[in-house]
Design a protein around this nucleic acid. Structure first.
Length: 290
DNA sequence: GAGCCGTGGTC
DNA sequence: TGACCAAGGCT
């Protein structure tokens, strides 16, 4: 199948159905795009929107954030989850000031070197903020291509070389078009070609989709184990972090003890948070955000 | 490469 | 109701 057959329908669909998101507007700075990408890692758009707006209002440039203690970034992160991302974003801002004169770099390798920026985020920022041509492969794109090209309901657990090659072969030659293509396929995955309950009747390429044409065969790959939650260290760490976020003054250990019944686990998690630099011990039995 | 890292919404 | 999942990265 000529891969270009997919371009026009998806680009036209995006032109008509794209969401108006702050980091997509013409006036959005590369910093705004970078902040959005860190926040959107494993976190839905609707929860990111208010935090992103407040973040850019408070820290309009990387230098503004780098000038603050890391704990302020962790507090402003709020309940987005995975608070180490706040630490990484602060560290990225510091590196941007130190190594790039305060300007978010446009080069993929420079972006990849920043804390919290992996292959996806580097490609996304280079593409969305600077119009560069890259293979932007996130979970949405992987799912869309698995269905349209691969005829499978869901992609495999790990990204394969063949999968990356297939995605690369679909990227339009022109850089500006490639950048729009990247965001368009992601948007299609987010709004139509969703993991559960895809709306094939609204899909611009349903009649070219291998999975749709095959009658929606069910996923038959290796089982995807569900994340445990109740009683895990992650839940315990979340409780501890919530207390420290809510208190602007340092808190005594007794206030933390009340949040989790298992003392051994609680102590271990607190030590882990300190080791991760998400929590600072400011005195014996007294803790605060760093 | 598998395991770990938060949080809250959805069907 | 609860399992699944949401623009990943790091070790």
């Amino acid at each position: 199948m000529p891969t270009s057959d997919l371009h026009d329908p998806i680009l036209d669909w995006y032109d008509e159905h794209q969401r108006d998101l702050p980091w997509r507007r013409p006036e959005a700075s590369p910093w705004s795009v970078l902040v959005s990408e860190l926040m959107l890692q494993q976190t839905p758009v609707v929860r990111v929107l208010p935090v992103h707006e407040a973040w850019l209002e408070r820290w309009p440039t990387p230098a503004d954030l780098a000038a603050e203690p890391t704990g302020e970034a962790v507090r402003a992160w709020g309940r987005l989850g995975y608070p180490r991302r706040a630490l990484r974003l602060h560290a990225a801002a510091t590196a941007i000031v130190a190594e790039h004169d305060g300007e978010v770099p446009s080069d993929y390798d420079d972006l990849l070197a920043l804390p919290g920026v992996g292959d996806y985020t580097a490609a996304a920022v280079a593409s969305f903020a600077f119009g560069r041509r890259h293979v932007v492969l996130d979970t949405n794109v992987r799912r869309v291509l698995a269905r349209v090209v691969g005829g499978a309901e869901l992609p495999g657990r790990s990204l394969t070389r063949a999968e990356r090659d297939a995605a690369a072969a679909l990227v339009p030659d022109d850089a500006a078009t490639a950048a729009t293509w990247a965001v368009a396929v992601m948007e299609l995955g987010a709004l139509v070609c969703t993991a559960a309950g895809p709306r094939c009747e609204a899909c611009p390429v349903a009649e070219r989709c291998a999975w749709h044409l095959a009658g929606h065969p069910a996923y038959d790959g290796p089982p995807r184990r569900a994340q445990a939650w109740d009683g895990t260290d992650r839940q315990c760490r979340g409780r501890l972090m919530a207390v420290l976020r809510e208190n602007h003054a340092p808190v005594h250990r007794s206030a933390l003890d009340a949040t989790w019944p298992d003392e051994a686990q609680r102590t271990r998690c607190l030590a882990g948070l300190v080791a991760d630099r998400l929590v600072a011990q400011v005195a014996p039995d007294v803790y605060a955000l760093p």
